[in-house]
Design a protein around this nucleic acid. Structure first.
Lengths: 365, 365
DNA sequence: GACCCATGCAGAAACGTGCCTGCTAATCGG
DNA sequence: CCGATTAGCAGGCACGTTTCTGCATGGGTC
C-alpha cells in the first residue's frame, strides 16, 4: 500500500526512465514513446514538449529494454578464424584491417554497430556468444564445418560470410573474389613480362583462399606445361615466411618469377632476392597479394594483387543488413568482387621510366 | 481465461524460453535459473537434470532480458577519433590494429566483447550510441573537450582512455606512454650515432601524441642548442606524408638525421632519400615510430620506436573491467607503458655486421 | 439530431530473465 | 517428542520499453 508512492525503486540514481519523463511532462508513457520515436499521431506541440522535457531530464532510453521488446539489437557480430594459440590474427594483415574498417563504417551508416567475437564458441554459460544479442553475423573465412555458423543459422540468425563457404555450410549470403581468375590473370601477366618458370609462395592452411589460389596455380602450370615450383609455410607465423621465401630462391630449379600469396611475402622475397644477389625485376619478377601501401615505395616498387577488402567489407555488411531487415528476398545471395592487379616495377622487365634525375652518390648505379 | 493455456505466445518459433525449460523439466523458473547460473542451493541431481533438459531444447538465454535485469551487458565500447570525412582511420596504422587486437582478446578473456563505435555522437534517437547497452568504454586519443566522454562519465559509465586526457576531461583511468622520455631517448641515440642536425617529420593535428612528441623535440633542440628543423603535414593523408618527407630533405638546412612521428614515414623518408641520392645511414640517419614489421626487412632495415600497443590495449581493458566490476578502488588510475627503441641499421653509422656473404651480381656494390 | 470517422491520448499487456520472499518437509539438538 | 534450523523449491515482482487496444472528444455529413 505504501509502496505505490515510491516513484522509482531499483533504478540507478541519475538515470531517468521513460516514466519520469511522462510524469514530468504530464503525459502518459505511450505519448512519450510515440513522441520520441516519431510514431503514433501527435500534434507537433505535444511532440516538441515531450522532447524538451526528455532533454531537460537527460533521458536516455534503455537499449536493453528496447532490444527485449523489439527483438532487434542493432548489433552485428564480426568473427574471424583463429590461428593457433593467438586469439586471432585479426588485422594481422592489412586485409583484415581494411575489411573490418569498411564493414564498421558501412554498418554505422545504417545504424548498426559491430561486435568483435571469437570464432570458437565454448558451450558454456560464460561464453561471450551467449551474452550478446545479435541481429546477424559476419563470418570471415568460415571453416568447412564451422560450428558457430551452424548454430547461428539454426537459431534463425542471418549469417553472411567473407569467402565462399566450403562444402554444405549453410549461410544467408556470401561475398568473395574470383580467386582462380585473379591468379590466372596474374600468372599470364608474369608470363607476358617474360617469366619462364613462375614460383609460388603459399600456405599450409586449408582455408578457401589458399586452396583456390594454389589449385589455380597448379592448373595454370599444367596448361602451359611448366613444372610447379612452390614452397608452403604456416601463414600465421611471420618468421616462417622469410624462411620459406629463402627456401624458394635456394632451390636448384630456381624460378625467375614468384607470386606470394600473403601480405608480407613481398618484403620477404625482396630481402631473399638481395641475399642471393638477384636483381628485381631483371633477374626475378615479383608479385604478391597485399593491401599495404608500402609496396608503392619499396626499392623497387612491387606489383600487388588487391582483393579490394573495402568493397568486400561493405558488400558483406549491406547483404547482412538487407537480410536482417528483410529487404533482399529474391536477390542473389552470392556476390563476386573483382580484384585489381596494381602493376609496378617489380613485374616489368623494362621499367616504365627511370627515376626522375637525382644523382646516385657512391658507386654510380 | 482461455488464454492461460497458451504456453508461448509471441515468442519466436524455434527459440525456447526459460519457461519452456521449466515446464519440460517439471520445475519452476527459479530452479532453472539457479541451476544454469550456479546459484541458489540445489542438489546436483536437479542441477544436471535441468541442464540436460535445457540442452535438449536448445535453450539459449536472452541476452537482452539478462542485461535488462542485471544491468550488465558484457559489452565494452571502443572508439577512436575521426579524421575528416573518413569514418575513422581505425587500423589505418598498425598501431590501432595491434592495440585493438590486444584489447579484443583481453576483453574476451574476461568474458566481455568489444563494440566498435564512432567517436562522434549525434544527439538523435537514431544514434548508434543510444542503441547499445555498454558497461564501459575505451576511448583512443580523446579530444580536449570530448563530448562523448563527458556524456558517458555523466551517465556514470567508466571510461578509460588510451592517451592521457588533456585539460580537465574526466576519465576513470588512462594508459599512455611517456612520449617525452621516448623522444628524448631517441634523439640522444641519434646524437650518439653522430647526428649533428636532427629533423622531425610531424603532424598538423593537435592530438596529445603529436603535441607531446613535438614539444619534447623542441625542448631537446633548445637543450643541445640546435635549430629545430621540422615539417608538418596532415597525418591522415598518406600522400601528404611523402610530400612532407621530400620537403624536409629539400630544405637548405637539410638534416643529417630524421625522426618521423608516423608509421609510413619510414618508407616515405627512405624513398625521398633515394631521390636525393642520400645513403642511409651514411648520409642520413633514420628513425620512425611504427609497429610494422616491414621495417625489419627494408633496405636498409629502419630503426623504429614501438609504443607497445599490445601492452596498452591489454592494460586499458584490464583497468576498464576492473572499474566495471569495482575491483580497482584505491589502485592507481594512471598507467605508463614503457616504449621500446628497436635499433636497426638506419640509425647506426657503422652497420653492426655486413650481410652474410651472398655475392651482389651486377655493379659489385 | 444521430451517425461516423479522425484525432489525441491513456491503460495495460507483454518481452524473458533474476532474485527476493516464503512455504513445506526433513534433520537435529536436547 | 518438540521447537529450531535448514535444504529444496515455487510465486511473483521488477527491469524499461514498445505497442495493441480502447476511450473520449470534436467536427463533419446525411
Amino acid at each position: 500500500m505504501s509502496r505505490t508512492e515510491t516513484p522509482r525503486r531499483g533504478s540507478r540514481p541519475g538515470r531517468a526512465g521513460i516514466r519520469d519523463v511522462a510524469a514530468a511532462a504530464g503525459v502518459s508513457i505511450t505519448t512519450v514513446s510515440d513522441a520520441l520515436n516519431g510514431k503514433g499521431r501527435l500534434p507537433d506541440a505535444t511532440r516538441s514538449h515531450v522532447r524538451e522535457v526528455a532533454d531537460r531530464l537527460g533521458y536516455r532510453p534503455s537499449a536493453a529494454a528496447r532490444t527485449l521488446r523489439t527483438g532487434k539489437s542493432g548489433l552485428i557480430g564480426l568473427t574471424v578464424t583463429t590461428y593457433g594459440d593467438e586469439p586471432f590474427t585479426f588485422t594481422e594483415f592489412a586485409y583484415f584491417a581494411e575489411m573490418a574498417r569498411a564493414a564498421t563504417s558501412a554498418a554505422l551508416a545504417r545504424g548498426y554497430a559491430l561486435v568483435i567475437l571469437p570464432a570458437s564458441s565454448r558451450h558454456s554459460p560464460f561464453d561471450v556468444w551467449q551474452n550478446v544479442a545479435l541481429d546477424g553475423t559476419v563470418v570471415i573465412d568460415p571453416s568447412d564445418d564451422d560450428q558457430v555458423v551452424t548454430e547461428l543459422m539454426r537459431q534463425g540468425l542471418p549469417v553472411v560470410s567473407d569467402g565462399r563457404p566450403s562444402g554444405d555450410l549453410p549461410v544467408t549470403a556470401w561475398v568473395d573474389n574470383d580467386h582462380e581468375a585473379a591468379v590466372l590473370e596474374l600468372l599470364d601477366h608474369l608470363a607476358d613480362a617474360g617469366a619462364r618458370r613462375i614460383g609460388l609462395l603459399t600456405g599450409t592452411t586449408t582455408d578457401t583462399y589458399t586452396r583456390l589460389s594454389t589449385t589455380a596455380y597448379l592448373r595454370w602450370c599444367e596448361r602451359v606445361g611448366q613444372d610447379p615450383v612452390y614452397e608452403s609455410y604456416p601463414a600465421h607465423d611471420p618468421c616462417a615466411g622469410a624462411v620459406a621465401a629463402d627456401r624458394l630462391l635456394a632451390r636448384p630449379d630456381r624460378p625467375d618469377a614468384v607470386y606470394g600469396l600473403f601480405d608480407p611475402n613481398g618484403t620477404d622475397l625482396l630481402a631473399a632476392a638481395r641475399r642471393y644477389g638477384l636483381r628485381v625485376p631483371e633477374d626475378l619478377l615479383l608479385v604478391c597479394c597485399s593491401e599495404s601501401t608500402v609496396y608503392a615505395s619499396t626499392e623497387p616498387p612491387i606489383t600487388t594483387l588487391s582483393l579490394k577488402p573495402r568493397r568486400i567489407g561493405t558488400a558483406v555488411v549491406q547483404l547482412l543488413i538487407d537480410a536482417i531487415e528483410g529487404l533482399n528476398t529474391g536477390q542473389p545471395v552470392e556476390q563476386v568482387i573483382p580484384t585489381e592487379l596494381i602493376i609496378r616495377t617489380s613485374s616489368q622487365r623494362r621499367p616504365p621510366r627511370t627515376t626522375v634525375s637525382a644523382p646516385r652518390s657512391p658507386s654510380g648505379d
